[in-house]
């Protein structure tokens, strides 16, 4: 029972890390691309955009967060079910909407709020199921 509780806690912590890193990474990429400006689809425009992106500190911070997302995603999948992690990760959509309202003072339509409520209820339902329903493989034990 204690093992199952520990498994649930570490899975939820890792899913939270996934969601935070993915959202922070996306926001940083968006901020970096706003600083760089619209990319022109010509050889010189693409070369200029490439130079600007590789020298953009904000973009590298975004990439750092996206690496953090990939690592936490791989780590949680090493013990938890894919059918548990995948819907739980959708909590990021709800979190982004809250951030948009609280920090950016964006107006959110009733339809989007209904979507946020459905995601939260869905994630709560999935969160109550067992994070792992399969046995640890022999290959992993070797």
């Amino acid at each position: 029972m204690a093992t199952e509780g520990r498994l649930r806690i570490k899975t939820l912590v890792m899913v939270c890390m996934m969601v935070v890193c993915a959202n922070a990474g996306d926001l940083m990429l968006k901020r970096a691309m706003l600083q760089i400006g619209a990319v022109e689809l010509s050889a010189s425009g693409l070369a200029h955009a490439f130079r600007m992106t590789v020298t953009s500190g904000t973009l590298w911070v975004g990439i750092f967060f996206l690496c953090g997302f990939m690592l936490s995603y791989m780590t949680v999948l090493s013990w938890a079910n894919y059918s548990y992690v995948m819907p739980a990760g959708a909590f990021g959509y709800a979190l982004l909407t809250f951030f948009a309202v609280v920090f950016l003072h964006e107006a959110v339509s009733p339809r989007r709020w209904v979507g946020v409520v459905l995601i939260c209820v869905g994630v709560l339902l999935v969160g109550q199921t067992k994070p792992r329903t399969t046995a640890v493989t022999r290959e992993a034990l070797a």
């Binding site: 059918s83 548990y84 819907p87 959708a90 959509y93 709800a94 909407t97 339809r111 989007r112 209904v114 979507g115 946020v116 409520v117 459905l118 995601i119 939260c120 209820v121 869905g122 994630v123 709560l124 339902l125 999935v126 969160g127 199921t129």
Partner: peptide, 15 residues
């Protein structure tokens, strides 16, 4: 879990 997945699916579409 199925019920949660379907709710998340509809929720993401609405958002």
């Amino acid at each position: 879990r199925w019920a949660g997945v379907v709710l998340v699916c509809v929720g993401v579409a609405l958002v």
